[in-house]
């Protein structure tokens, strides 16, 4: 009796392992953090891009307007790609675009804006990248749609036509 149970037990175990590996193959091995919706944006302090004045996050995101927070840098190549979509959005009246200049040199960043135009209503500096971490970002570019101090949508990587469309629909 005992001799029969053991092989059967082993066969079942192996079958389960096979099944799990098989299922596991279909999952991506690259980790991306789960995107939680409706998180409150943290409180942070930063310097304004042009004036170098200190501003607090609650001075940036006021009331129940829509804000698009975009993390960018002049050295980031995908940022150039998504720039035209930001320009497009900046023509909309009911959304304010906030730029977060990530680990950039001021001169390069200014050149970047001079060359490609400035879609941002306001830009603040994130020289050491810690504000990005407060926001739960981990790369450039990343974009957050914010309303009522809450993140309603988070986009990792550059914007594209579809995402632009989605954002426009959300803020209608």
């Amino acid at each position: 009796m005992k001799t029969k149970i053991f092989p059967i037990f082993l066969i079942i175990t192996f079958s389960i392992i096979f099944f799990v590996f098989y299922k596991g193959l279909q999952n991506s091995s690259i980790y991306t953090p789960e995107i939680k919706s409706k998180i409150k944006i943290p409180n942070f302090q930063a310097k304004e891009f042009f004036s170098k004045d200190k501003i607090n996050s609650d001075q940036i995101f006021i009331g129940n307007e829509y804000y698009l927070l975009n993390i960018w840098a002049s050295w980031c190549i995908p940022c150039k790609e998504e720039h035209k979509y930001l320009m497009d959005l900046s023509k909309k009246e009911n959304i304010k675009i906030i730029g977060q200049n990530y680990k950039d040199s001021l001169d390069n960043a200014k050149n970047f804006l001079a060359k490609l135009d400035n879609p941002y209503d306001l830009i603040f500096l994130d020289n050491d990248g810690t504000i990005a971490i407060e926001l739960g970002a981990y790369g450039v570019p990343e974009t957050f749609l914010i309303k009522n101090n809450q993140i309603i949508k988070k986009i990792i990587g550059p914007l594209n036509q579809n995402l632009l469309f989605e954002i426009k629909k959300l803020i209608q």
């Binding site: 590996f21 193959l25 279909q26 999952n27 091995s29 690259i30």
Partner: peptide
């Protein structure tokens, strides 16, 4: 198979893994 996340992974391809 690329089922694991590692510094030294080869290009992954689920068909090979299977």
């Amino acid at each position: 198979s690329g089922i694991l996340n590692s510094v030294h992974t080869f290009a992954d391809d689920p068909e090979r893994g299977l």
